[in-house]
Every structure is written in C-alpha cells, then in structure tokens.
Design a protein around this nucleic acid. Sequence first.
DNA 1: TTAGGCATGTAAAGTGTTACATGATTTG
DNA 2: CAAATCATGTAACACTTTACATGCCTAA
Lengths: 182, 182
Amino acid sequence: MDVKTLCLGLLSIREACGYDLKKTFESSFKHFFPAGYGSIYPALADLAEAELVNCREIPQVGKPDRKVYRITEAGELAFLKALNRTEPQHKLRSEFLATIYFADRIDDTRLADLLDARVEKLRESIEDISACIDDESPGASFVAGFGAVVAEAAARYIESHRHMLVGTDNQEKDIHIKVVTG
Amino acid sequence: MDVKTLCLGLLSIREACGYDLKKTFESSFKHFFPAGYGSIYPALADLAEAELVNCREIPQVGKPDRKVYRITEAGELAFLKALNRTEPQHKLRSEFLATIYFADRIDDTRLADLLDARVEKLRESIEDISACIDDESPGASFVAGFGAVVAEAAARYIESHRHMLVGTDNQEKDIHIKVVTG
DNA sequence: TTAGGCATGTAAAGTGTTACATGATTTG
DNA sequence: CAAATCATGTAACACTTTACATGCCTAA
C-alpha cells in the first residue's frame, strides 16, 4: 500500500482536497505512515487520471482554486481490492537504533542526549496519538491505541535500560549487563 | 544514516565481504534496518572509491573472488563523524496499520488472518532477536532488548484488543469500545 | 537430485524527500 | 509586524527494491 492507495482510502471516507489530506496524514497517520505534499499531490493527480476519483474545482479569492476530490465507484472497488491484496508490510527504519548499536563509540554526553531526545519524542507522540484514540472508526481507535502502547513500551525500555549504555560512574560502561527481555 | 554508513560501521568492527555484511544485516539489523544486496554492494563500491575502505581480492575456486573490505583511518574518522551528526530518525511505515485503519471495510475472516499473521511475525522476530541479546557489545544488546520489548508490547496489544475489530459475535463490531491506553 | 549456501554484481523501476515557487488572509 | 494558515504544484535528488545474470559445492 502506497500513499496513493491511502489517499484513495481517505477519500472513500469523505471528499477532500490535497491540503485536507495532508492534515489527516498529520493527525492520524504521522506516526506510522508519514506523507508530505510531494507525495500527496502527485498521488491525487494519478488517481484522477485513472478516474478513481473526480475533481471539482472551487474558485477562491487570493488562493489557488480548491480542488476537491471525490471517489468514484471504480475507486471504491479498487480500494477494496487493495485492502485484500497480499500481506501488508510493517517496516521500521531506525537510524536511532543503528546509532545506539555503536554506543561504545559515542561519548556519554552525546549518548545521553540521544536517549533523552528519543524519549521526549516518544512522549510527544503519545500525546498526539492519545488525542485521536476516540476517533471515528474502530480501526482508527485500534491503530491509535497500538501506537500509544508501543511508544510507551519503547520509552519505558529506554528509561529502564539506559544504565547499560551510559553510567554516572563511567566504569559501568564496561560491565556487561545481562539484559532480561521482560 | 544510510546503508553506506552502516556498512562502514560494521567494517569498523571487523573486515568482511558483501556477503558477510548481508548476513550481519539479517541477523542483527533486520528488524530495524533491513538492507539487501542491491544496497550493500553499491555501498561497498562507493566506500572503496572514497577510500574509506580498502579491498583485498581473495581468489576462489568455483565462486567469484571474495572481496574483503577493511576500513581505513579516513573511514574510521568519517564513521565517528557520522555518528555525531544530527538527530537520527526513527521511521515506521506500516501498511499493516494503514490497512487496519480501514477495518470496517474488511471482512472478519480476512481481518482475523491479518491480525494472526502479524502476531505470528512478531513472535518470530522476538525469537530471532532474543538470540542476539547477549551479543558482542552493550549497544547491540540494548538494541536487541529494545526490539524484543517493543515487539512483545505490539503482540500483546493486538491479542488483547482484537475484540475491538473482530467479534465471534458479529454485533460487537458496531459497539464503540472505549480504548484505554494502559 | 535437489535445495541451500557461497559469492559477485547491474539495471531499471518505483517511491519518497526536499527544496523551490507564489501569495493573500488571519491571528497574536 | 511577524508568523501561521490556506492552497497549489514541480523538479531534482536520493535511495531502495526487484529482477536479472552466473555457477560451483555440499549436504540431505
């Protein structure tokens, strides 16, 4: 599933313009499926060309015409088909973890900053996500809940295991501490 | 941090050929930074051209020459510099969650399959990861522990909240269940 | 005898990110 | 008066993914 398909899915809920979709991405998808204008606008153009959506242009003063896209029947079908296609992926790409992997090459101050910054971001995103946990559909709620729980687990892990990497006392760094998963 | 930099980092631990690096990616980075031959071989070629690594060709019978790469001093410096550059990203892109977001458009059987498949994958990756939790460096252990804990949280969430989406009794689907994060 | 491991790579296609370009109105 | 919001898009770049291409050796 690419940005194009996701746009189609959102348009199957309600009609919208590119700008609206971007806001939806920001509020509901940011933490697991980010997309910017550079993906959304071309996606809409493609969908329109394939006649999976219609476009109605609403003139405005002082702004570009607002292009409101509405899904077509062909679009509905295409979306349902996409929803049933092949096992959906779930991919993480973490420069953060890759960096931490080499913790022994990073000085304590920098390392502490990295860990703190990540925890802070996680806490922020938990705030964001919690705001839409009571969202429109069960699916939206489930996904938001998932994000919140996973982020919470990540933050807690970092806080409770940071001693493995950064010690107030520098000697701790050389002690090989047994990690217990649970 | 891209695949190129990660290869450089791995070569700063020990010399290796592309094939070896791929195996390391599979065993240690797969769950948070996947990479295939199509990324690794070009990365090595680039690193060699930039003289951040040297290459020694070892002739073999019945196989292509084994090209063993070893990091140079310039490479070590470049890697340390990369490790200290800008806040590292941590990006998730989940077609799975995007699909589940539209759960109300998916029939119960398919939905149950999706959830089951994901839980199974998570359990598998927990197995994988646990195997390298006592790895060489504190950083490697920390990262493995992180992966295991987060995957466990994800699996548990799916199991304990699947009733939000899939009901043995189909009526449950329409009841809007309040999600509690904790 | 067949599957899997060892070992290299290229080329094209697909996708997303970032930066650029424009500009009025509203809010603090 | 500055910053944010509304509103569109393109173009270049970066990067990864996938498919292709080759071929021997070993273990089950």
